[in-house]
Amino acid sequence: MPFVVTYPLQLALSRKPQWHRHLHTLNRYWSKLFIFMWGMPVETVRKSPLPAGQPCLYVANHSSYIDIPLLFRTIPGWLNIMGKLSLARVPVWGPIFGRAYITVDRDNAISRGRAMVQARRTLEAGRSVIIFPEGSISKKPGEEMGEFKDGAFQLAIAAGVPIVPITMPLNHRFMPDVDGLRVRYSPLAITLHEPIPTTGLTAADAPALRQRVYDIITSGFRPEAQGIPEPSHWRPSSAPAAPGTTPTPQAPQKQELASTNS
């Protein structure tokens, strides 16, 4: 509903780059309202103040469809975000995302290079960037992350901007990446860890920086949040009798709602 109500204005603001700042502000407000309307409490932890007067590269784990709205809700300022090219092909919302933010085909080297150039120019213009260094949603969200790609860390070093690791440990419990829509009541949480300066680092330091950020993000995972919620379904108390047969008498049973973590 928040998106549908604001869609005409978002579409208009997406048409000109000079209006994208206002589009992002609108996206932040509808993300806040979107999460509020689900009724999910959000625990927000900021380990230290964000660097003042300079852009940052925000590096987050990727586990759910709710990741982007939660990031937009939490991180202040005018942001850019790097997302997979298929997001720009989503009906209605996709063209807006494709005009306002960075899209990348991760299987195409030219597309990856172009996306990094866009991100570098964004940082140089004083606008922070969000990247999911796993490249896609984790196969075991909340438990382990996929291997990080080097691009984000080489980018931060080349641009001389600090990296802010972000942990979102519960998003997959609320809205996992599964076929169809599966939603469970689960409080959300997001932790912005202490910024890591990159001043004085060289490209040779990228692997160590990548591992450091990986370890920091996983330190915020919660063991009790591991695994994907099971689907809910109605389970009849007994199978129906075949046509022309007499059903076997059974003790009365209640129809059960088999729902794990619902």
Results as ranks from 00 to 15, higher is better:
Phe3His: 14
Phe3Glu: 05
Val4Asn: 08
Val5Glu: 13
Val5Phe: 14
Val5Leu: 15
Val5Ile: 14
Thr6Gly: 07
Thr6Lys: 07
Thr6Trp: 06
Tyr7Pro: 01
Tyr7Ser: 15
Leu9Ser: 10
Gln10Thr: 03
Leu11Cys: 08
Leu13Cys: 10
Ser14Asp: 12
Arg15Phe: 06
Pro17Leu: 11
Trp19Ser: 13
His22Gln: 12
Leu23Met: 10
His24Met: 10
His24Gln: 12
Asn27Lys: 03
Arg28Phe: 00
Tyr29Lys: 13
Trp30Met: 12
Ser31Gly: 02
Lys32Phe: 06
Lys32Val: 06
Leu33Glu: 07
Leu33Met: 13
Leu33His: 06
Ile35Glu: 07
Ile35Asp: 03
Phe36Met: 09
Trp38Val: 02
Pro41Met: 04
Thr44Asp: 01
Val45Ile: 15
Val45Leu: 07
Arg46Ser: 10
Arg46Met: 11
Lys47Leu: 05
Lys47Ile: 03
Lys47Arg: 11
Lys47Trp: 01
Ser48Asn: 03
Pro49Phe: 01
Pro49Arg: 04
Leu50Lys: 12
Leu50Asn: 12
Leu50Glu: 10
Pro51Asp: 08
Pro51Thr: 11
Gly53Met: 11
Gln54Met: 14
Pro55Trp: 12
Cys56Ser: 10
Cys56Ala: 10
Cys56Asn: 06
Tyr58Glu: 07
Val59Lys: 00
Ala60Val: 10
Asn61Trp: 09
Asn61His: 08
Ser63Val: 15
Tyr65Asn: 13
Ile66Pro: 06
Asp67Glu: 13
Pro69Glu: 09
Leu70Phe: 07
Leu70Arg: 05
Leu70Ile: 07
Leu70Gly: 03
Leu71His: 05
Arg73Trp: 15
Gly77Met: 08
Trp78Arg: 11
Leu79Tyr: 11
Leu79Asn: 11
Leu79Phe: 09
Asn80Ala: 09
Asn80Thr: 08
Asn80Trp: 01
Asn80Pro: 00
Ile81Cys: 12
Ile81Pro: 02
Met82Ala: 14
Gly83Trp: 00
Gly83Glu: 00
Lys84Trp: 02
Lys84Phe: 02
Leu85Val: 03
Leu85Ser: 14
Ser86Gly: 05
Leu87Gly: 01
Leu87Tyr: 00
Leu87Cys: 01
